[in-house]
Simulated assay, not measured.
Amino acid sequence: MSAVLEKSKLVRKSSDTPDEVRPFADNKGRLHVYELGDHIAGKGEFEPGWRWSQHVKPIAGTDSCQAAHTGFVIQGRMIVKMDDGSQMEYGAGDFFYMPPGHDAWVVGDERCVLVDVTGVAKYAKPH
């Protein structure tokens, strides 16, 4: 990871040069991590067939995803199901908030690509 940047400096990062790439199990996608001063953002690429409980749970070591995610879906579709059984489908053009305590999976045969600005720091990172 790169050195911490000063808060008073402008930051620009190309999506082609992440600070870190975290692969998911079975080559079902990856999280590109970008350090932006005191903030961390991520671009998630989730392949068809990806499911959190199969492809990230072994990395996270928790029963459900414990990260809160806030962001925007660029491409594809994803269903998020909360531990309480409620669920919602998100698609290209949707902003989202996903509280901790959920499973998620890609819908259909198209890769889901999204930008996450809150749940990246420890996501898909071994504990």
Score class of each variant (00 low, 15 high):
Gly42Trp: 07
Leu114Gly: 01
Phe72Glu: 01
Tyr123Glu: 00
Asp83His: 06
Glu89Pro: 00
Ala41Trp: 11
Ala92Phe: 04
Val56Tyr: 10
Ala104Trp: 04
Tyr123Ile: 02
Gly76Thr: 02
Val107Gly: 04
Val120Ala: 09
Lys81Asp: 00
Phe46Ala: 06
Ala41Phe: 14
Thr70Phe: 13
Trp105Pro: 01
Tyr123Val: 00
Asp26Ile: 00
Ala124Trp: 10
Asp83Glu: 07
Asp116Met: 06
Asp103Lys: 05
Asp109Ile: 02
Cys65Thr: 03
Pro18Ala: 08
Asn27Thr: 04
Ile40Thr: 14
Asp94Met: 07
Val120Leu: 09
Thr70Lys: 14
Gly71Trp: 04
Arg12Asp: 03
Lys57Met: 08
Gln54His: 15
Ser64Trp: 06
Lys7Met: 12
Gly44Ile: 02
Val56Thr: 06
Phe96Val: 01
Leu36Ile: 08
Glu45Thr: 13
Ser64Ile: 03
Cys65Pro: 05
Ser64Val: 01
Ala124Arg: 09
Asp116Tyr: 08
Ala3Lys: 15
Val113Asp: 08
Val4Gly: 09
Asp19Tyr: 06
Gly101Lys: 03
Met98Tyr: 11
Gln54Glu: 14
Met88Glu: 05
Gly61Asp: 06
Met1Asp: 12
Asn27Arg: 15
Trp50Ser: 05
Lys13Thr: 04
Tyr90Leu: 05
Gly93Ala: 06
His69Gln: 07
Val115Gln: 09
Gly42Glu: 08
Val115Pro: 06
Ala67Trp: 07
Trp105Gly: 01
His102Cys: 02
Lys81Gln: 09
Gly44Thr: 05
Gly76Met: 03
Val11Asp: 06
Phe24Ser: 03
Ala25Thr: 03
Asp116Asn: 11
Trp105Asn: 09
Met82Asp: 02
His127Arg: 13
Pro48Leu: 04
Met1Cys: 10
Val73Met: 11
Gly71His: 08
Ile59Asp: 12
Gly42Arg: 08
Val106Tyr: 06
Asn27Asp: 15
Lys13Gln: 12
Ala68Tyr: 13
Arg51Ile: 01
Val21Gln: 15
Tyr123Asp: 02
Pro23Gly: 08
Asp19Met: 03
Ala60Ser: 14
Gly76Trp: 07
Met82Gly: 05
Ile40Asp: 03
Trp105Phe: 11
Phe24Gly: 03
Ala104Glu: 11
Glu35Gly: 12
Val106Trp: 03
Val106Asp: 01
Asp16Arg: 15
Gly93Asn: 07
